[in-house]
């Protein structure tokens, strides 16, 4: 194993004409590049971030309902579930179980999802206006399975956590988490495939539906 590593790296060095001197300048260059974290060209940001986020989400086949406060979320989720004739039981991130779900007639368990759960309710770390994308991070209270295994994914998105682009999302992770968590998942609408005759089908291996409850005053 060690030989392959040495062999590959030494051939790369030889082909790049690596010498002791240019290794020093090269290292300085990569440090500078990592320090600069230069951004590429970006589309003009729209003034109304929330409107942009909602419009892009809908373009990706997600649905959006706006409510004012966190406490309004259970009733909104219950409305969605009733309208789509879905079961009234769900798994949710642990940080969300404190909301009054039973008051809205729903049974919500705070745990990771398994293959049998049909609805997963999550929050977001933040959301991206440019593309209508939800960002979820893995962690003890934010299992990745909740947004992946169930057929329906419902996400509560505080308006204040909508950032313009992916760049700001990464900046926010660096600022609030330090290092990256195990999984940073950008989710843009329900899972899909176009493999058979390039015909778009929603619901491949992940959710068939993504519903966003936008929390306007949060």
């Amino acid at each position: 194993m060690q030989d392959s590593r040495e062999d590959i790296l030494s051939r790369i060095r030889r082909r790049l004409g690596r010498t002791a001197e240019n290794a020093t300048t090269g290292r300085a260059e990569i440090e500078a590049c990592l320090g600069r974290r230069e951004q590429g060209p970006r589309p003009a940001a729209e003034a109304d971030r929330v409107a942009r986020f909602c419009a892009r989400s809908e373009a990706l086949s997600s649905t959006v309902e706006e409510v004012a406060r966190r406490e309004d979320a259970p009733a909104a989720v219950a409305r969605y579930i009733a309208a789509h004739d879905l079961p009234r039981a769900a798994v949710a991130w642990r940080q969300l179980v404190g909301l009054d779900w039973s008051g809205a007639g729903l049974q919500v368990a705070g745990r990771a999802a398994n293959g049998d759960d049909l609805i997963g309710i999550t929050g977001v770390f933040c959301a991206v206006a440019e593309t209508g994308t939800l960002l979820v991070l893995s962690g003890p209270d934010t299992p990745a399975t909740a947004s992946l295994l169930p057929e329906t994914h419902i996400a509560l998105v505080p308006a204040s956590r909508i950032v313009p682009g992916m760049e700001e999302a990464f900046t926010l992770i660096r600022a609030e988490c330090g290092a990256l968590p195990r999984a940073v998942n950008f989710i843009s609408g329900p899972s899909r495939t176009g493999d058979i005759e390039q015909t778009l089908v929603l619901g491949a291996h992940g959710p068939y539906r993504v519903h966003i409850v936008l929390l306007r005053d949060c």
Binding site: P140, P143, P181, R182, N185, F186, I187, S188, G189, S191
Partner: peptide, 18 residues
């Protein structure tokens, strides 16, 4: 944007559930 874009770093942390 593609539906899922994941940036994966390291193994499961001790407290993680998945």
């Amino acid at each position: 944007i593609s539906n899922y874009f994941s940036v994966l770093t390291g193994v499961k942390r001790p407290e993680d559930t998945d």
